[in-house]
């Protein structure tokens, strides 16, 4: 199914950025991630293409400062998908290889000029980027 131009433009923007960007549809399926995001996922977009939410959401674990797993409902992207509003949060992520990293995430909804909610974008910032 062809994507609306709002999603295409977000992909084109992400392609130009040096920070990790993830773009999802309205249910959280991963439509695109840029090269800096490949480093976090440990996967290449060219190899995986789009990924269903069940797959990509298990690639890393989200934890708080004390190492406790975060409720997915607390994550910015999930909140954006649920409420169609922007969110921000700093937390820790642990990859499948056990690598832990402090990360800040900004997320925003993609709502085009037709007023229709089309998906969401999550931007990951490493503390050194802030």
């Amino acid at each position: 199914m062809p994507y609306p131009i709002e999603i295409i433009l977000n992909r084109q923007l992400a392609d130009c950025l040096a920070i990790p960007v993830f773009i999802t549809d309205t249910t959280g399926n991963l439509l695109f991630y840029n090269e800096p995001a490949e480093e976090i996922l440990g996967e290449r977009y060219e190899d995986t293409g789009e990924m269903p939410v069940e797959k990509w959401s298990t690639i890393f674990k989200s934890k708080d400062e004390s190492g406790q797993l975060l409720d997915p409902e607390e994550l910015p992207l999930v909140k954006t998908l649920n409420n169609q509003l922007p969110y921000f949060k700093t937390f820790w992520i642990e990859s499948l290889r056990g690598k832990s990293e402090k990360i800040s995430v900004s997320s925003y909804p993609i709502i085009g000029r037709t007023g229709v909610f089309m998906g969401a974008v999550a931007i990951f910032w490493r503390p050194s980027d802030e």
């Binding site: 062809p2 295409i8 433009l9 084109q12 392609d15």
Partner: peptide, 18 residues
Amino acid sequence: ALGSKGLIENPDWLSGSQ
């Protein structure tokens, strides 16, 4: 072709493909 990589050769990612 707007963007750093020009035309994306996948109809789903091409503006106006429908």
